[in-house]
Design a protein around this nucleic acid. Sequence first.
DNA 1: TGAATAGTGTCTGTAAGACAATATTCC
DNA 2: GGAATATTGTCTTACAGACACTATTCA
Lengths: 223, 223
Amino acid sequence: MSVNQVICTVDLVLLTLQAGELQVALLKRDREPFKDVPALPGGFIHADEDGDARFAALRVLREKTHIATPYLEQLATFSGPARDPRGWSVSIAYYALVSIDVIQQARQDQVQLIPVDKLMPLPFDHKSIVDTAVARLRSKSQYSSLPCYLAGESFTLPQLQRVYEALMGEALNKVSFRRKMNEMGMLEELDGQFGAAGAHRPAQLYRLKQEYKESLTLLERGL
Amino acid sequence: MSVNQVICTVDLVLLTLQAGELQVALLKRDREPFKDVPALPGGFIHADEDGDARFAALRVLREKTHIATPYLEQLATFSGPARDPRGWSVSIAYYALVSIDVIQQARQDQVQLIPVDKLMPLPFDHKSIVDTAVARLRSKSQYSSLPCYLAGESFTLPQLQRVYEALMGEALNKVSFRRKMNEMGMLEELDGQFGAAGAHRPAQLYRLKQEYKESLTLLERGL
DNA sequence: TGAATAGTGTCTGTAAGACAATATTCC
DNA sequence: GGAATATTGTCTTACAGACACTATTCA
């Protein structure tokens, strides 16, 4: 019976912030279909080695980009007979957030970063997967600590504010922003450490508290 | 190769509000594994007939409960080698919201409604699927029109407030609630129609405006 | 000292919650 | 009229944004 002739894959939307713009990582496909065309990192689920789809996503990300410990969250599952020319397929999509440093340190020269707002058409339904991920990220950024994962290991509050502003596309009130970050209680000062200063007062460095490294903090109300 | 030996299914968390409690619909399984044990309605994706996983979910719901037009939204995808004894499996889970009337009119006597807070262990990982759906619903209810889909075709504002309160588990301020519903602008008065009254003033009936029947309204801030 | 950015104090306007008054129904 | 619930007006409180002042660094 044809019931289970379903191709099962994972796809990754690896997002980072560079030059004040949200960018998505694309890789040239190493096989057909769409060989050599830039697309989302993805691959088949390996039933003999993957513990679940999340592990499959982490494996694919590690194999294709050498990034091992991103913030990773399931996005949605895309499916249908037409999205993959090989047949009826299911793609469990995840989105990963990393700072630009992590991508640069991974030294994967094949990775291209493209601003999500200037994205070209992509193979499969990858464009709509990216759009869904960006919408999800922007929506969640309004009321959560999600943007911190784009800011790197340590950051100043002004830097973090610029990350939030880049995601939300609007300027935020400085006083309110700092009040909120304080209320959320997820940041800790790095004692006596300050961001590189120019000819001005340097800013206190912070990092996410350990207990928030893999979970989100939600705000009662938006920023 | 074993790469694609993955079982692909959809599961449905059909939720309704009865007696002031959120309840989930269970059906006795009609085949092995877990034959005759109550579980979520679910089934294989039929690659030859389903347009995508959402259509598969609607088909399964229609076949198993005779409910054709629920509010339906993808929840998450559950996967792994152990959740189904038949092998490595993927379940794309959807949650559906309907008023209790819709379930009663469907006349599916096999459907059991169980309060989600008193749920027994279920086969597969269905318990954790239900828990995820309930958490999602409760979380989204704080800032969206989602609960309206549990309230039926028409309802009074006091009835709707009781729905929100049942979901959020706390009393809401009456004035603020009505202000919010008004601001959201998704309801319309049913002209000259009122809820059944006892020995007191009857309440104005409302319904969701047509343009909101399949989309959510989000609040700037919570209730 | 001046320029530049970090960090804070305080005022104001807006929105949510408390309280209470009025409205409508059936008995 | 009395009981019960619906609906609305208004006061109070809490919080977000605006503005401005202080702090700290380098040139």
